[in-house]
Amino acid sequence: MYHREPKVEMNDLTVLRTSSLTGVIERELEHLILTGELKPGERLNEIQLSTRFGTSRGPLREATRSLQAKGLVESIRNRGVFVRSVSPTEALEIYDVRAAIFGLAGRLLADLVNDQMLAKLNAFLDQMDEIAASKNFDDYYPVNLAFHDYLVTSTGNNTLVKEYKGFVNKLHLARARGLVQAGGLSVSNREHREMVDALASGNRERAQEAFFRHVERSKIRFRSTLGSAESRL
């Protein structure tokens, strides 16, 4: 007997196209926010963004709703949608929780580490050492993010990955160029080497402590850039 394939209605195709377009716009907006092109507190201009992306406002609004769920934007009644600002107090709290999650990542990785992973991690370290010598924040920062992302995703724990990335995204809104201002590029990468050495040892407790301590030190570097804002914490 001949079986007909299920017919896809035009409205179904429209939903698929809209959903795909919304995802693309969401990723583009997230990139603009995390790279600082759209700054904390800045209002998202629907007309300008619709023109930029060549789309109607519907998919754009869907995308901003998703970004609001991620904590990157906030909707203010009768005013519009704004890039979210993270206060110093909230950022310091996020560092504390991030340290605990990142420490757990180190503990999990100590049981999973292999020669291939160590080779890739050491390649990251060598690249960051070279960049740190020139004190080039713009080149260092994306490699630093990729290094941490590789560590976290290598745990294979999707819940951990999701929570960790959510906290990191929020910190993007708060910390700007703290590594450079605190003279911390080379210092930060020395801590990265401590983490990789701890993983290579296969010792869970040592790895967990090295990962936790790295975020704690990052928190100290961030706090040192707050200046007068710190006195208000």
Rank of each mutant, 00 (worst) to 15 (best):
E5N: 03
P6H: 03
N11K: 15
N11W: 15
D12N: 09
D12I: 11
T14R: 14
V15D: 15
T18E: 14
S20C: 05
L21M: 13
L21S: 12
V24Q: 07
E26K: 15
L29D: 07
L32V: 02
L34M: 09
T35A: 10
R43T: 01
E46P: 00
G54D: 06
S56F: 07
R57F: 05
G58T: 15
G58M: 13
P59F: 08
L60C: 11
T64P: 03
Q68I: 06
A69D: 13
A69I: 08
E74V: 09
E74I: 06
R77M: 06
S87P: 01
P88G: 00
T89Y: 03
L92N: 03
R98Q: 13
A99D: 12
G106V: 10
V113Y: 05
Q116R: 10
A119R: 10
F124D: 14
L125I: 15
L125Y: 10
D126E: 15
Y140H: 03
Y140Q: 03
Y141P: 04
V143A: 04
N144C: 12
F147P: 07
D149Y: 13
V152R: 05
T153C: 02
G156K: 01
N157W: 03
T159I: 05
K162V: 02
V168W: 02
N169G: 13
L171T: 06
L173I: 03
R175A: 13
A176P: 00
G178L: 03
L179G: 03
Q181W: 00
Q181D: 03
G183L: 07
G184V: 04
S188L: 13
E194F: 10
A198T: 12
G202F: 06
G202T: 11
G202L: 07
R204S: 14
R206Y: 02
Q208A: 15
Q208G: 13
Q208L: 05
F212A: 13
E216M: 08
E216C: 05
E216F: 02
K219A: 11
I220P: 00
I220K: 14
F222L: 12
S224V: 05
S224E: 12
G227M: 01
A229R: 01
E230H: 03
